[in-house]
């Protein structure tokens, strides 16, 4: 099963992902209607794209008492059944990644739907900072970094 994997060190903060997420789903560019959100951490000189991680035992789905959230069996994305969603915002609070928000006009939950398996944010990121890949490959970036750190530390010892 594929998920979105982010390498925050590559993110340049252009927010093209936000623009097209909003554009593709809502037909306009609106900073509150994007399902991916880039947070600029000024003090750390870092841009952090927050994305849905398609949790297996998804806290958002578990929190919903109206049965408005389900899983897409093909992609693993969380789907919002808008007719059932009452806009109670329990899912916003439940999300461990802070990526559920509320549509300002419809007052329904906004959650990444992986663009039915072809995520626009991945396609248009100029830095390759967002990948859509098999979940088992998650951690490869961290592995490489850890390996580098271990070798640097070793060099210093010698």
């Amino acid at each position: 099963m594929k998920t979105l994997v982010v390498d925050e060190k590559k993110c340049c903060g252009c927010r093209i992902c936000e623009q097209w997420c909003s554009w593709t789903h809502e037909g306009c560019v609106n900073p509150t209607m994007t399902r991916i959100k880039v947070i600029k951490l000024h003090e750390q000189y870092l841009n952090l794209p927050l994305t849905c991680t398609q949790c297996v035992n998804a806290p958002c789905i578990n929190s919903c008492t109206f049965g408005a959230l389900t899983k897409d069996q093909n992609t693993g994305a969380v789907l919002v059944i808008e007719d059932l969603c009452v806009g109670c915002r329990k899912c916003v609070k439940a999300c461990p990644n802070g990526v559920v928000s509320i549509h300002k006009e419809k007052r329904k939950a906004l959650i990444c739907d992986l663009c039915q398996g072809a995520p626009k944010c991945v396609e248009l990121c100029p830095m390759g900072a967002i990948q859509y890949q098999d979940v088992s490959l998650e951690g490869r970036v961290q592995q490489a970094e850890a390996a580098l750190q271990i070798t640097c530390a070793k060099e210093r010892c010698e």
Binding site: C12, G13, C14, Y45
Partner: peptide, 17 residues
């Protein structure tokens, strides 16, 4: 240089940390 920075909606990305 330790990172790249861009303004809003630009894919040239000329800013450098």
């Amino acid at each position: 240089v330790f990172g790249d920075v861009s303004c809003y909606g630009c894919n040239i990305v000329c800013g450098k940390n």
